[in-house]
């Protein structure tokens, strides 16, 4: 199956975006190969979240071209739906649906978007809940879980849609320190399965372990692209150096 997919998962060419007069993204060029793991870092307000939110069109771009799989993102809602079905996203604040149980959170989209039967959807959901190690919480509500557990559910919820690409938008920055590891472990295991991943995160251990490339953004631009080891030990750009000196 893997060979039938196009070798390029995501391609951004000359993408620019403005909020009113303020330019948040400037001439972004990025090609992500299938199975590649990319870690994106940079100071707050650098446009890193905005960039990955453009990939499933939670935000629209004004100039340039974004191609996901073999679909170009335009205002065509059908294409947006197509892309969203294949791209999973994990948010900083989990964004689980508070009125639904863990299991219902995981089966909602498979049933209504993928048109799976309830029974199949529940089976798939339990599989993934097992993988993120919380099958026993399936019938609880999100409010009854810890932050780390909620984020693992959010990952499972995305995986239930059988996505080809996963986007992570600072998945551990709203968590208490002792819960960061359980979420990162889940992400590492997902990476080892060959998932294409774009992660906005400052977790350097994670970047070193799984990233193929680290991208550093500042002021809406990609300033440096490097191998993780090289990026953290010998950053090339002065702004990368400054940033790393601040977070280390």
């Amino acid at each position: 199956m893997q060979s039938a997919l196009p070798p390029i998962a995501v391609a951004l060419s000359n993408v620019s975006k403005w909020y009113g007069k303020f330019q948040v993204l400037t001439d972004i060029n990025l090609t992500v190969k299938r199975g590649e793991k990319i870690v994106i870092c940079g100071p707050s307000g650098s446009g890193k979240s905005t960039m990955i939110r453009c990939i499933n069109r939670l935000e629209g771009h004004q100039r340039g071209k974004i191609v996901v799989g073999d679909t170009e993102l335009t205002n065509d809602l059908k294409k947006v739906d197509e892309v969203r079905r294949d791209v999973g996203m994990v948010f900083q604040h989990f964004n689980l649906f508070p009125h639904l149980t863990i299991l219902q959170n995981c089966t909602l989209a498979p049933i209504w978007v993928r048109k799976m039967s309830r029974r199949d959807a529940e089976e798939v959901a339990m599989d993934y809940l097992q993988r993120v190690k919380i099958p026993e919480q399936a019938h609880k509500y999100p409010g009854q879980l810890s932050g780390g557990q909620q984020q693992r559910v959010a990952i499972a919820r995305s995986l239930c849609m059988n996505p080809k690409i996963m986007l992570f938008d600072e998945p551990t920055s709203a968590l208490d320190p002792e819960m960061v590891k359980e979420v990162l472990d889940t992400m590492v295991s997902l990476a080892s399965d060959g998932m294409t991943m774009l992660c906005v995160t400052h977790e350097m251990g994670f970047a070193r372990e799984v990233a193929d490339r680290v991208i550093f953004m500042d002021a809406g631009q990609i300033v440096e692209t490097n191998a993780p080891e090289a990026f953290f030990s010998t950053p090339q750009h002065p702004r990368s150096k400054l940033f790393l000196s601040q977070i280390l």
Partner: peptide, 10 residues
């Protein structure tokens, strides 16, 4: 709203 859109809900 974002989570629902990201999951592809209409």
């Amino acid at each position: 709203f974002e989570a629902a859109k990201a999951l592809g809900l209409s």
